[in-house]
Amino acid sequence: MRIIRLTEPYDQTQIPNSDVVLAMGFFDGVHRGHQRVINVARKKAHNTHLPLAVLTFDIYPKIFFTDVTKDSMCYLTLNQEKIERMEALGVDILYIVTFDENLVYMPPQEFIDKYAVALRARYLVAGADFTYGPPAIATMPLLPEYAQGRFNIMCVNHLCDGGQKVSSTRIRQALATGQMTEANRLLGYHYQVHGKVVHGFQRGRELGFPTLNVLPWAQERIPGDGVYAVRVCLDGESTWYQGMASIGNNETFGNDLARTVEINLFNFNRQVYGRQVTVEWMYYLRPMIKFDGIDELICQLQADRARSRKLLASL
């Protein structure tokens, strides 16, 4: 897959000299709804013997229209994971467009001229709610006015699950409340978080449950507080280790403690400080609890481990 990064004003010589089927969207999470859009585009590309191109943006465009700042926005998939998932979906060319003030104020006609026509789209494929400017004047029903017959338009209807639209917003809400089964179903894969193993207080080791303390990548969305059954892969290795993770403030050990991500891996006793890890969040077990004593906590951890092993054994 060829990756082309475009920053306004971009150099036209960056654009391949071939017509393409072009799918557009931000695609945060590359969930089943997004996969549907890309699969429709891929089928058209196959039938017309054209390359499949996808255009996305480096940051969430709506940041410029909300109170959320660029640095505080949390994503389901950061750009590297998005790139990997696009490649797995069979994308030939991935355009990653820098979304800045130059695009915020760009009129819809200019955007279509520069990012559809100039990218040599013979077919433009997007979801029914895709916008390419202010929602009042840049919707899919209005796209033919800007296309001016220069390319064909394929509008992909929403994918529904349980009577509701599959959306990034819905997945974020599921993650925030620990609904991992729903989040993973809507994504079409197990949700992942990436991070670095750092030193902690080693309380888990003292309890007989040594943990990896993971510092997640900035701007990656973390599931809500609770205890989960997880799988972990160390960077550079292919083995997935089973375990259980906690997200929260560990109130049993005191008040006003920092929120942490701690993972107890089964049958694992290596020192891996400084290593990068990928965590797959499989099942939600229970909320975080402030225990009255250490013995009560250990008893609960033993139950959590047994339940996690049982759930993960079915994979």
Rank of each mutant, 00 (worst) to 15 (best):
2 R>H: 12
9 P>G: 09
11 D>A: 10
16 P>K: 13
17 N>L: 10
21 V>F: 05
29 G>M: 03
53 A>T: 02
56 T>L: 04
57 F>L: 07
58 D>L: 03
75 Y>V: 05
82 K>R: 15
86 M>S: 04
88 A>D: 12
88 A>N: 10
94 L>P: 02
99 F>R: 02
99 F>H: 04
102 N>G: 09
106 M>N: 04
109 Q>H: 14
116 A>P: 01
122 R>I: 01
124 L>C: 08
125 V>P: 03
128 A>Q: 11
137 I>L: 10
139 T>F: 04
144 P>K: 12
144 P>E: 14
146 Y>L: 00
149 G>F: 11
159 L>E: 11
161 D>K: 08
164 Q>H: 12
166 V>S: 03
170 R>N: 03
175 L>V: 07
177 T>N: 09
178 G>P: 01
179 Q>D: 15
184 N>I: 09
196 K>P: 00
215 L>Y: 12
218 A>N: 08
230 V>L: 07
231 R>V: 01
241 Y>H: 15
243 G>N: 07
245 A>E: 01
250 N>W: 05
252 T>S: 11
266 F>T: 04
267 N>C: 05
270 R>Q: 14
270 R>M: 06
271 Q>I: 06
272 V>N: 03
282 M>P: 00
285 L>G: 02
294 I>L: 14
296 E>P: 00
301 L>N: 02
302 Q>M: 09
312 L>N: 02
